[in-house]
Design a protein around this nucleic acid. Sequence first.
DNA 1: AACAATACCTGCAAGTGTGTATGTTAGTTT
DNA 2: AAACTAACATACACACTTGCAGGTATTGTT
Lengths: 209, 209
Amino acid sequence: MPATRTSKTGRTQEERSAAMRARLLDATIDCLVEHGYSGTTTTRVAERAGVTRGAQVHHFPTKADLVTAAVRDVAARRARLAFARMDELAASTDPIGDTLDLLWEIHQGPIFAASTELLLAARTDPALRALVAEVEPEISEVIVEFGRRLFGPQADTSAFRHYAYTAMDTVRGLLVGSWAYPDDSHLDARWQRARACLRQLAPAELTVR
Amino acid sequence: MPATRTSKTGRTQEERSAAMRARLLDATIDCLVEHGYSGTTTTRVAERAGVTRGAQVHHFPTKADLVTAAVRDVAARRARLAFARMDELAASTDPIGDTLDLLWEIHQGPIFAASTELLLAARTDPALRALVAEVEPEISEVIVEFGRRLFGPQADTSAFRHYAYTAMDTVRGLLVGSWAYPDDSHLDARWQRARACLRQLAPAELTVR
DNA sequence: AACAATACCTGCAAGTGTGTATGTTAGTTT
DNA sequence: AAACTAACATACACACTTGCAGGTATTGTT
């Protein structure tokens, strides 16, 4: 136990460590979104987090570690957010449609830009690639688990998996496209169209558990 | 006319210039694909093209110029390739389906990786962004023109445009996804599914001109 | 043949990014 | 309270990138 109060701050090592890591990860995501992967220099991250570079390197020895940890972190947070709304979906009159909307919603915010930056960087950086290869199955597994809890064993069929992938591809495509054609005004409308298509495409026998 | 043959090479300035530019642009695309945007250093490009950096900077004063020119170049070449197959499409029994397949085919090869690298870099780099904003409408226009020639004035309806965008988004999404999940084996199968969906989604009244 | 213009080369300056080595402070253990 | 460990800070070395200045060679013009 943290018995001896030798100092004034009164924070245990673990608390300090966790707080520091959180600040660094947040700063990293911000940098990824604002400056892209190569613009996310360890120096800049440290600055933004209000931390010295020494502290940063102590927690994340290499840039690859830092960035993957950051993306893993937001992904996990978004996942928790999704799971928190599971009941709502199960009670819905159109669970599939609502799940699609949730998928869209989850992808809003910094997560998509950040993870795309990571992904594209990993495409050509072996060190990153190795780390991403570790993280990616975790994320996949979370998605599958989500489906399993919502739709039961049907989620383990290959048809379901294909469907889930297709849905995610569609969302990704729309969002990448939104960078190419910065006319964001019709973005939601286009999602509505795509959603309608996906809704129709859903395996007919799919029912909420 | 290039009358005076003062030298042995016998190449006109314009020829020299064009050849040099071509070599630089090709090398740039290769680097984009292999090393990503930030890994595409002007030094590396020059090396790869077998040219000094001085020559490179003479033709493309800045890195942004070089890279956008390169992407514009491949895009143009792919477009020519598409136009070359226009007759084939017009004669097809399923012109829309075949056009979708052509769209997919066009996106294979280096063009997609290269342009995505450019796009993502432009997302956070103002100088690049400005150049991309110039190139992007050109590309859009080519696509619209293609549609217009194949489907006539129907291509100018907003429904058609939305459809074209959706199709392109789908292709992009699939390909970005293929980097996230490096299991390329099912990629074509997934395109078949997506294609089927898009085929169905096509404006019913759409006919070849 | 002489002059101008363009293509191309060499070398450099300034800035930046990453990782590491080494010192200091705060927390933990006995 | 002393010894120990983890957290954090400072400073540096090495490599690398970009854009530019100033020179040489090739082509076009008169």
